[in-house]
């Protein structure tokens, strides 16, 4: 991707939007406290932050460095505001890049991933708004026991389709990380749905090291 006027501006826009969104988010609890005249429970706040923030900050820090090169500039600014990155925004961007047949690090790739993530964010927000408006009639349907297994298996259903495309196209790169992750997840009980987010950067770094070695040896 060339360093163009657009790629300069996207950072200016992104910074302005994200920092404004951060201020808005912080204002939300402050506004509730003022409106209802309620101060936070200091003990609960400190204990809650002590148990939650260090882990989330560490994971958040690693996620930023892992996902930005994959999401592109516009996609990163948007994704880190709208969330659900690994289970929605990144697969959506990957699929769009694949369909458009463009490289992630090209000018077209930046456009494609930003459009895919922006549309995905708009649709997600709209569906959640609909869900909130219709929460009373929807709850018994969406929580029906018959549908529960379908929503419980959304990640395997997503990564089956996505995995077969990317692994078959890059099978030489994929052999080592897929093998390592299979061994780790099968034999280490602590690795599960709750820790997969932490394993993404581990797997990415491992893949980059192996790919570099293979590239230097003329195997890729």
């Amino acid at each position: 991707m060339k360093n163009t006027n657009y790629s300069e501006k996207i950072h200016t826009w992104g910074r302005a939007w994200n920092l404004s969104m951060m201020v808005l988010l912080i204002l939300f609890p402050i506004a509730i406290a003022i409106i209802f005249g309620a101060a936070p429970d200091l003990q609960g706040l400190l204990l809650g932050l002590l148990y939650t923030a260090p882990m989330y900050w560490a994971v958040g820090f690693i996620e930023v460095f892992t996902y930005i090169p994959m999401l592109g500039a516009g996609g990163s600014y948007l994704s880190f505001v709208t969330g659900n990155i690994s289970n929605l925004k990144l697969p959506c961007a990957l699929n769009a890049l694949e369909q458009a047949d463009v490289k992630a690090n090209s000018d077209e790739g930046e456009v494609v991933s930003t459009i895919a993530i922006a549309v995905s964010s708009i649709v997600t927000t709209a569906i959640i708004i609909l869900g909130v408006l219709l929460i009373t009639p929807l709850t018994p349907i969406l929580e029906a026991p018959v549908l529960a297994p379908a929503f419980a298996q959304i990640l395997p259903a997503l990564f089956g389709g996505l995995g077969v495309v990317f692994v078959s196209r890059n099978w030489k790169i994929a052999i080592a990380p897929v093998s390592l992750m299979l061994v780790l997840f099968i034999f280490i009980p602590a690795l599960n749905a709750g820790t997969v987010g932490i394993m993404v950067p581990v797997s990415v770094i491992f893949t980059l090291i192996i790919s570099r070695i293979m590239y230097k040896r003329g195997m890729l």
């Binding site: 690994s86 990957l94 992750m181 997969v196 993404v200």
Partner: peptide, 15 residues
């Protein structure tokens, strides 16, 4: 770029 995508997918395949 491809390695980053594969690394991410590998973690979820493991999961």
């Amino acid at each position: 770029s491809a390695s980053m995508f594969i690394g991410m997918i590998a973690a979820f395949v493991g999961y």
